[in-house]
Write a protein that binds this DNA or RNA. Structure first.
Lengths: 119, 119
DNA sequence: GTAAACTATGAAGTATACTGTATGGTTCAG
DNA sequence: CTGAACCATACAGTATACTTCATAGTTTAC
């Protein structure tokens, strides 16, 4: 279990952003049981996984709300098994759509590069 | 050559957004030669291509600035041949990176779906 | 035991990408 | 020739995703 600065170092996500994600309900830190002198949060390895997932998802154009849906389904936030699978399958489909768009863009750029070369 | 509402219908991009893109330098409409009574812009098929490209690029997480770089290289905005190809190749590389991220996300979700099923 | 480093909260500020509103001129159908 | 539909600009407002303060308490190294 790590404190926020350690988590930040290991993931490259700034502390302010980590706090913002926590306030947004994407990740959760726990207070150490019995400690009453401070409000320090401790983060486990699951949070590292989540942050890495968030980074990737953001980079391919998912919003934090969309990412939250996945994380909630992943960590079964009061959803039926059926509903969880439905959410996750829908995201896989969206990923496939984005993959198609990337392929289309790549084709266009390849043509464009050829055009520039043969000028 | 189409007016803005026609272009909007054919692409699904709202007129306000088209104007915003034009002001941002992503697309260009032309005034009809000789017409002095109005400021109506006319758009050719290249603008339709650009708008479709913008839509795809936005959906996979490119910013308008990043998209503008591609469009400027595409339509040779005072860049040398070498510089154009450099920009376009870099974008292809970024596309490949995003593809890798999509694959990684898909793998994770597949594992996640299996976990939910076997509960 | 104190200064530096770390933690927290709350609120304000910033960048991006629109979206809406106000205003006013233009075109076109009947 | 007039009213509805369309075009333009300028500027204000909104949503998302942070980022930066200001403030204050806590921990740790010396």
């Amino acid at each position: 279990m790590k404190l926020i600065s350690q988590l930040s170092k290991e993931t490259g996500v700034p502390p302010g952003t980590i706090r913002f994600y926590e306030k947004s309900g994407l990740i959760t830190g726990t207070r150490k049981a019995g400690v009453t002198t401070n409000d320090y949060r401790y983060y486990g390895d699951d949070v590292i996984d989540k942050l890495r997932f968030i980074q990737m998802a953001k980079d391919v154009g998912f919003t934090l709300n969309e990412i939250k849906e996945v994380i909630d389904a992943w960590y079964r936030k009061n959803l039926t098994k059926k509903a969880q699978i439905a959410v996750l399958n829908r995201k896989v489909q969206e990923i496939d759509e984005k993959m198609q768009e990337l392929k289309a863009m790549k084709r266009q750029l390849a043509i464009c590069i050829e055009n520039v070369k043969n000028r």
